[in-house]
């Protein structure tokens, strides 16, 4: 296990060189947060309510800080796997004494954690300026810190699967794009699930998208134990299911590598 931890650390260190690039992305974060502050302010005022979908204006903006940070920190998992499949690098990796999927997970997670932390830091400063501090409770933060790695892991399994599709598909960028956009819209990046039409909510709570984006953000701003437990279960089940699918698909793919020579 420790070697994968080391891989993750190394990837973080190599990413630190690109701090400037990450920094310029924060301008975009500022613009988005400002625009949504304006949009929600107007919406709260016009509906004459202090709480929409169970969130106050302040919570709504902090919710957005978390969801945007999750989405913006996404590393290019599917592209990396896709390239490894096409260039034959994946076949080369098989000789090494480590698991390719776990190696990939470590490498991309290191990058993602760093990028998330930076975006989240900047987002928090902006939110502090715009709406002030959130009424945190420590248990909420603890629950959030537990959900975030699982959210990244779940996201990873799906992107990894899409990358593996390169064994059969000519191009996986389309799939990647569709999945990423579904995560944004169905995961509740811009509006929390509670504000979706009533019929949708039941379905969305079962799909993996909300476990990646909505879940951690909601728990962060409200510290709701009920939501935490259901998201946790949703994440664990989804990870197990996708890990199982990866196992099957990966073995199928390996058989292809060995019979066709990549």
């Amino acid at each position: 296990m420790s070697k994968y931890f080391y891989i993750a650390l190394t990837s973080i260190r190599s990413r630190l060189a690109y701090l400037g690039e990450l920094g310029s992305k924060t301008i975009f974060l500022f613009v988005v947060l400002y625009i949504f502050l304006c949009l929600w302010k107007v919406t709260y005022a016009e509906t004459n309510q202090s709480s929409l979908g169970g969130l106050s204006l302040k919570q709504m903006l902090w919710y957005l800080v978390v969801t945007e940070s999750i989405i913006m920190s996404l590393p290019t998992i599917a592209t990396l796997v896709d390239q490894d499949v096409r260039t034959g690098a994946l076949a080369m990796q098989l000789v090494r004494p480590m698991s390719y999927p776990l190696n990939m997970l470590a490498q991309t997670s290191g990058e993602r954690v760093l990028s998330f932390a930076l975006n989240f830091l900047v987002g928090s400063i902006i939110a502090l300026i715009f709406v002030g501090p959130l009424d945190f409770n420590l248990s909420g933060i603890a629950m959030f810190l537990l959900l975030i790695p699982l959210s990244f892991a779940l996201d990873f399994t799906i992107y990894f699967l899409i990358g593996l599709a390169a064994f059969w598909l000519e191009d996986t960028t389309g799939l990647t794009l569709i999945y990423s956009r579904m995560t944004m819209i169905l995961g509740g990046m811009l509006i929390p699930l509670e504000l979706f039409p009533d019929g949708w909510q039941q379905i969305l709570r079962v799909l993996p998208f909300s476990a990646i984006v909505y879940g951690p953000a909601r728990v962060f701003v409200t510290g709701d134990l009920q939501v935490f437990l259901s998201v946790l279960i949703q994440q664990i089940v989804a990870i197990l299911v996708f890990a199982f699918v990866i196992r099957i698909v990966y073995n199928l793919a390996l058989r292809r590598v060995f019979s066709h020579g990549g």
């Binding site: 016009e46 509906t47 794009l177 819209i185 811009l190 509006i191 504000l195 039409p197």
Partner: peptide, 20 residues
Amino acid sequence: INDFVWIAFWCLFFTRFPVV
């Protein structure tokens, strides 16, 4: 697809809050 996400977002938003 990319552009459509935004149309979808606005449709969702306006079902909840018809006028801004």
